[in-house]
Design a protein around this nucleic acid. Structure first.
Length: 749
DNA sequence: GACCTGCTGATTTTT
DNA sequence: TCAGCAGGTC
């Protein structure tokens, strides 16, 4: 035992040790970025096991599949596969789905209930709206969906929602909400939020069930606690109440999911909920250089709402943060690539680099450039494999096999491939099913009695139900994987794509083949696996996780996806006002954007680059952009000298402009630097800043002076107005390109 | 019922 | 820009 403990705490600092060795009672670990959080969690579980806690009495909840997988494999490395397998470690959604399958009958579902993802949810809501005759134009289903989801996250039930509804939209949403809930039950389905809500209902309804799980989960651990919502908070509270052995780990500075219902109160109120809470702060950062940490700190300190903490590191000072100014997104991508190429020295290789961005749309330009440059890369996240149309079709077929009440699945596949059961037919069936309060599939069996149906349609329906029935007897099948692959073939989907033969169809066909092989692997590696579990796994999985972690490639992904990861060299791309921080409307939370920036900066170990473009394609149009305010928040000391200084000047200029109440670009000169479009062009429309055309008084051959680079000669000019750029050949440093509006060049001689 | 076409709105972020 | 869909035609 002694030896064991020694191994468990070896290499940990005092704070980490304290967190690991605190076995009983409520514990909150405030874990700064790069402070060895995952290690502490893993060692803590290892310690529980080493001191006699049964693995099945431990519940470890994570936020993402990736985190869960990582945790499981780390535990396995210490205590072995067999014991690790018995620990309940997984995402909130997967763990509670597992419990709900076991206890489904208690709350009026069957154990083969379907999980609706966001897409299913949306189409279910659209269906409900059609039934209620609510127009999509005045009541956008998308908005209804997010309102319902937000309500569920906050545990606001239908009745309360309806009572609080003031606006027309909210009142409509209330009606839809009510019918949607009934619709879910009729479909034997739960949406993502229900996996939590129904668990809460289950635990609150039956003391026996509650006690059962309280006894099972004597030790509870929650990772990324700052990102939990009220429903998650509630379910954890219920489970932990009896034994109070609850440990939550989080960092308020990295809370980036408020938009999804994450409630910072959960972390702030923890001490109030558990009066004898022990607090451990992990403040030593092992990941980043001093400069990177300083950059992160200088940004996050602009946030008012945060817990006091002092992140520090023993690591070297390191290189400064380099800012890269780019003309547009293509230039940005190319500059990033050439910087990566020139950075690969010593034992660095592609896998040590990551490019992070705010929106998935930014991946496109990067991907194109990387492909052209022949650099191996992987996009994490983005358009999920399981959200592709053909994959959703396949899984909808599976869903129908295990849950005939799943109307969403049925409607999705009924005419895919076309089998002569179109919208007119389905409308008759829907009307009939609603009237008789039965599922669509049940209505199919009474097809002859449905008024309006053509004989041809009735025949097609019979053929379809026969097909489904043939494959519904999967219970006693020996080789499920083989069985399913036959089933997929029998749906006619693969045949359809084969015959189409277009590039797009070939891709889709390939994707389906990938599912078939995935199924085969799944059933080979999970001996007790069944179809229900497999489908649930898909429903809760955003993508195939970490397919090629071993191969040497650059990783590109969104900032949200990057949370918890670290790379030697990190590029933060698209640091432009409006894009990052993203500002859409007044409700947007700048502090959350800043936390996201903080997360981004702290992903870097040794070197951080930050880039912005002066113009960028958005919505198919080129927009002029300006550097993000976050750039100006970074301590100028840690920014690369030339760029840092330039940014500082720019900032001063802006402040002066604000003071003077005007916006002039070249210092020392004012309105004579630009002329306006002649007023006669428009009638009464006011001239906005964007419409002004700036004319800079430079020509090729002019001698100019730059604050940083000194004197030089303009060797080229291009672009018009604000986009006008100059190439200047400096006596000191050679050729440099500038946007004139930022460069602050002054004519000399 | 299948196919074509022109329009619209989407770009946060995820279980 | 471009995918997805409503609405119209065959």
């Amino acid at each position: 035992m002694e030896a064991n403990l020694d191994i468990i705490t070896r290499g940990l600092n005092d704070k980490q040790k304290e967190a690991v060795l605190t076995k009983n009672g409520p514990l909150i670990i405030i874990a700064g970025a790069g402070s060895g959080k995952t290690k502490v969690i893993t060692q803590r579980i290892a310690h529980l096991l080493a001191t006699g806690v049964n693995p099945w009495n431990i519940l470890a909840l994570t936020f993402t599949n990736k985190a869960a997988k990582e945790l499981k494999s780390r535990i396995a490395r210490i205590v072995g596969e067999e014991i690790a397998d018995k620990v309940w470690a997984g995402t909130f959604h997967s763990i509670f789905a597992r419990i709900l399958r076991i206890e489904a009958e208690e709350i009026g579902f069957t154990s083969s209930f379907t999980i609706f993802d966001a897409d299913d949810q949306l189409s279910a809501i659209t269906n409900v709206m059609n039934i209620l005759l609510i127009a999509q134009q005045t009541t956008p289903p998308q908005q209804v969906r997010s309102k319902i989801s937000a309500a569920k996250n906050q545990m606001i039930d239908v009745d309360t929602f309806k009572q609080n509804a003031k606006s027309t939209l909210d009142k409509q949403t209330g009606l839809i909400f009510e019918t949607y809930e009934k619709y879910l039950k009729d479909n034997n389905a739960m949406d993502f939020d229900d996996l939590l809500l129904n668990t809460i209902k289950l635990l609150e309804k039956s003391q026996a069930v509650l006690s059962k799980y309280q006894e099972r989960f004597r030790y509870i651990l929650v990772d990324e606690y700052q990102d939990t919502n009220r429903a998650q908070y509630r379910v954890v509270n219920l489970l932990a109440k009896a034994h109070q052995n609850i440990c939550v780990v989080g960092d308020d500075a990295q809370s980036i999911y408020k938009w999804r219902g994450a409630d910072i109160r959960n972390i702030l109120d923890f001490e109030r909920d558990y009066p004898y809470t022990k607090i451990v702060k992990l403040e030593q950062n092992y990941r980043s250089t001093k400069n990177i940490l300083k950059a992160a700190d200088s940004v996050i300190k602009n946030n008012k709402n945060q817990l006091p903490k002092d992140l520090w590191t023993d690591n070297i000072e390191g290189e400064k943060v380099e800012v890269i100014a780019c003309a547009d997104e293509r230039d940005e991508a190319n500059k990033i690539i050439s910087l990566i190429k020139s950075s690969i020295v010593g034992d660095l290789s592609y896998k040590d680099f990551a490019v992070l961005y705010r929106t998935n749309a930014q991946a496109l330009a990067l991907e194109n450039a990387l492909r052209t440059a022949n650099i191996p890369y992987v996009v994490v996240g983005g358009l999920s494999f399981f959200k592709r149309k053909e994959i959703k079709d396949i899984t909808a077929y599976f869903r129908l096999l295990i849950n005939k009440k799943d109307n969403e699945a049925l409607q999705r596949v009924i005419n895919e491939p076309p089998r002569g059961i179109g919208n007119t037919t389905m409308q008759y069936v829907r009307d009939y099913a609603i009237k008789k309060e039965i599922s669509l599939y049940e209505a199919f069996s009474e097809a002859e009695q449905i008024t309006g149906l053509q004989q041809r349609a009735v025949t097609a329906i019979k053929k379809f139900t026969e097909f489904v029935e043939t494959y519904s007897a999967f219970e006693n099948v020996e080789d499920v994987a083989d069985y399913l692959s036959q089933f997929i073939e029998a749906t006619g989907l693969t045949e359809m794509y084969r015959e189409l033969g277009t590039d797009d169809a070939n891709d889709r066909w390939n994707n389906i083949q990938q599912v078939i092989s995935d199924i085969s692997i799944y059933f080979k590696t999970n001996t007790n696996a069944n179809l229900v579990e497999y489908i649930q796994q898909i429903a809760l999985m955003s993508d195939y996780d970490e397919k090629n972690t071993s191969s040497d490639q650059i990783t590109i992904m969104t900032l949200h996806t990057a949370k918890g990861l670290e790379y030697n060299t990190v590029f933060l791309a698209g640091l432009e006002h409006g894009l990052f921080p993203m500002v859409r409307d007044k409700d947007d939370d700048i502090e959350e954007e800043r936390r996201l920036m903080y997360v981004g900066i702290t992903r870097a170990e040794k070197k951080l680059f930050i880039s912005y473009a002066n113009k960028r394609m958005r919505f198919g149009q080129t927009e002029l952009t300006s550097p993000s305010k976050f750039l100006y928040e970074i301590d100028a000391d840690v920014l690369d000298w030339a760029e840092g200084k330039r940014l500082l000047e720019e900032k001063e200029r802006r402040q002066n402009n604000l003071l003077n109440g005007k916006f002039n670009y070249s210092q020392g000169r004012s309105s004579d630097n630009y002329s306006q479009i002649p007023k006669s062009y428009g009638t009464a429309a006011p001239v906005t800043a964007e419409q002004k055309t700036t004319v800079f008084p430079f020509k090729v051959g002019d001698r100019v002076k730059h604050k940083v680079f000194g004197e030089g000669i303009i060797s080229g000019l291009k672009g018009v107005g604000d986009m006008r750029q100059a190439t200047v050949n400096f006596y000191s440093v050679g050729k440099k390109d500038f946007m004139l509006k930022f460069a602050g060049l002054v004519k000399v001689g």
